[in-house]
Simulated assay, not measured.
Amino acid sequence: MGLHNWVQIYLQEKLNCIDYKGYKARDKDMPDVNDHVINLQFSWKGLVKPVGSSFIGVSPEFEVALFTIIFLKSNERVTNAVVKVDEYLLEVVVCRHGRAIGTSYPKLLSSNNRDL
């Protein structure tokens, strides 16, 4: 389904399939124009996703490049890499599905600890 991508989240919300619950920005209460990664909570078709994460407003080329680099660096079924991108400390997760990427997503590590 790809609910780690802001375009898919938007399309599912437009179809009334997602009930958005809230977000966490990095180290602050409100995101601003410089925030490009958020943790969010939503329900999709009645199932609650307690914490999901997504890049927001970055180019598809950036996402493809980042996830491809992580994919190519390991042959493990799941590869976790901690990276610093601009001001963000992220854990990037890439899961293999055979010779392809099955799923991939960022986890925002440098965020505040307030509840959603």
Rank of each mutant, 00 (worst) to 15 (best):
H4S: 14
H4N: 15
H4Y: 09
H4T: 15
N5R: 15
N5C: 13
W6F: 14
W6M: 10
V7T: 10
Q8C: 09
I9R: 02
L11D: 10
L11G: 03
Q12G: 01
E13V: 08
K14I: 04
C17P: 00
I18D: 10
K21D: 00
K21V: 03
G22S: 07
K28F: 01
V33K: 11
N34A: 09
H36A: 05
V37M: 08
N39C: 13
F42I: 08
S43H: 07
K45E: 03
V48G: 02
V48P: 03
K49L: 03
P50Q: 11
P50S: 05
P50E: 13
V51D: 00
V51C: 12
S53I: 06
F55D: 09
I56S: 08
E63I: 01
A65C: 03
F67D: 04
T68D: 03
T68I: 00
L72Y: 03
L72I: 00
K73P: 00
S74Y: 02
N75D: 05
N75A: 00
E76R: 04
R77C: 01
V78H: 02
V78F: 00
T79R: 10
N80K: 13
A81F: 05
V85L: 12
E87T: 08
E87N: 06
Y88T: 05
Y88L: 09
L89E: 04
G98D: 02
G98C: 07
A100W: 05
A100F: 08
A100D: 04
I101A: 07
T103L: 06
S104L: 07
S104W: 10
Y105A: 13
P106T: 07
L109I: 12
L109E: 06
S111C: 14
N113M: 13
N113I: 03
N113E: 11
R114A: 15
R114K: 15
L116A: 06
L116F: 11
L116D: 12
